[in-house]
Design a protein around this nucleic acid. Structure first.
Lengths: 127, 127
DNA sequence: TTTTGTTATGTTTGTATATACATAACGAAT
DNA sequence: ATTCGTTATGTATATACAAACATAACAAAA
């Protein structure tokens, strides 16, 4: 929105955020949890995922649990014990959901970019 | 996102939020302040506007001040004193900005609605 | 059976943000 | 001059949410 519309000029930019909710509007999934899930997928453990991202294990663990409760299915499969302590991996359902989320996100990114450009003849360089 | 995509079915809905920021990404204007400004425009006073909306005068006043500081121009013109205590009215710049914001918002609403419908063959009834 | 590092979870501390409270300044009308 | 309800602003309280701390449970491998 930094640009001209008619004679008006505003030095402002558009930001936006998307997320998924249940029918009761309980928060299910946004960029934060999706990033976490992708990092889990990469590393095979929740602990190392949160270390890489820089968030607290306690919070991440609780968030995943809550999302799963609301969804009614598991996003991750967790094992504890073993020489290396344990593992956490994505379930197929988890992988499918984040895939759908990211596809939708991408389409919305593009569609908003177009709208902003059309509206202000300006490319919005924020996310 | 409550709908089918291929064989998948998710009982989830999309929510989103837009807002305007400065180049330094300071928060300037979102739905909250726009509603406030429109109520001020209707009533001619900040006090009655916050009473109607149900937010605290202290906070609303501070928010407007901050937005004006960042923008570098006034959104409202305030007068105190007089038999009826005082008044607050929109400036032309204020009116123009909220008008532009709402126009953009409307376009984004439509464009996201289309995207969600295309993506999930489903009308998202949330805001 | 001891070791290991992760998962699991309660509790406590911290921080940010909103609300509440209190009070002064103001100026047109009476 | 007094009154009035609003603007203006500091301070203090409450509430929500994130981070930090602490510790148990676990099971494969050595």
């Amino acid at each position: 929105m930094a640009g001209t519309k008619g004679e008006k000029y505003y030095n402002v930019f558009l930001k936006y955020k998307i997320w998924l909710v249940s029918r009761e509007e309980e928060n299910i999934l946004g960029d934060g949890k999706v990033n976490l899930l992708k990092e889990i997928d990469k590393q095979g453990s929740l602990q190392s995922a949160v270390n890489t991202i820089g968030i607290s294990y306690r919070k991440a663990w609780g968030n995943l649990k809550k999302a799963e409760e609301i969804l009614g299915f598991s996003l991750v499969e967790k094992h504890r014990g073993g020489q290396f302590g344990g593992t956490t991996t994505l379930t197929d359902e988890g992988r499918n959901l984040i895939e759908a989320y990211e596809e939708l996100h991408k389409e919305i990114d593009e569609t908003i970019k177009k709208t902003v450009k059309k509206f202000f003849n300006h490319i919005n360089d924020f996310k």
